[in-house]
C-alpha cells in the first residue's frame, strides 16, 4: 500500500504494508535517529512527534499515520533552514545530558512536546513529561536540568 507522510516538513509517498509500524518505516527510509528499543511502548527510544504530539512510533501503524506530519530528532535542528540546533538539543549538549545517547532522541522529542504545551514547567512536570522515556545510564538529573534550561531559553527568545 502507498501512504503519504510529511516527515520533517518533507512530503513523501511511501511503500508500506498494513502491519508496518511507523518505527520500521521511518528507519527503513533513513531516519535512524528514531531508535528501536523495546518495541512495546515502554522505553520511549522511538518517540517522534505525530502532528506535534509525542508518540511511541513502535505503537503506531504506518497506515494510521497516513496523511499526517511526523517530526523525528533529525527534524528538530534547523527547522528554519538555519542549521542551528533546537534549544532542547543545545541544552542537552551544554548540560552533558547524554551518556550512551540511545535514549536522547526520544527524550528530546518528549521535551519538545512538553515545552510546546507548557513553556514554564516545574521539575515535577518535566519528570512527568519524560516519564515515558527510560534512560539506563544516568539518573535523569542532567536531562531534567537541560529541559529546565531549554525552557528558560525558549521563553526568553519568545519574549524578544
Amino acid at each position: 500500500m502507498r501512504i503519504c507522510l510529511t516527515v520533517n516538513g518533507k512530503k513523501q509517498e511511501l511503500d508500506s504494508t498494513p502491519g508496518d509500524t511507523l518505527l520500521h518505516l521511518l528507519r527503513r527510509i533513513g531516519y535512524k535517529g528514531v531508535k528501536k528499543g523495546c518495541e512495546s511502548g515502554d522505553c520511549g527510544a522511538c518517540a517522534v512527534l505525530l502532528d506535534g504530539r509525542v508518540v511511541n512510533s513502535c505503537l503506531v501503524l504506518a497506515a494510521k499515520a497516513d496523511g499526517h506530519c511526523v517530526t523525528t530528532v533529525e527534524g528538530l535542528a534547523g527547522q528554519e533552514k538555519t542549521g542551528e540546533l533546537h534549544p532542547v538539543q543545545e541544552a542537552f549538549l551544554e548540560q552533558g545530558a547524554v551518556q550512551c545517547g540511545y535514549c536522547s532522541p526520544g527524550m528530546m522529542i518528549a521535551a519538545v512536546d512538553l515545552l510546546a504545551h507548557n513553556p514554564n514547567p516545574t521539575d515535577q512536570e518535566i519528570k512527568e513529561g519524560i516519564s515515558g522515556n527510560l534512560c539506563r545510564c544516568t539518573g535523569y538529573v542532567k536531562q531534567i536540568e537541560a529541559i529546565r534550561i531549554a525552557a528558560k531559553k525558549m521563553r526568553k527568545s519568545a519574549d524578544v
Binding site: 511502548g41 504530539r53 508518540v55 503506531v60 518528549a110 512538553l114 515515558g132 522515556n133
Partner: peptide
C-alpha cells in the same frame, strides 16, 4: 487521566 501512562501513550 494525568495518572494514566506517559504522555506518549495518552497521545495515542
Amino acid at each position: 487521566l494525568r495518572q494514566v501512562g506517559a504522555p506518549s501513550l495518552r497521545n495515542l
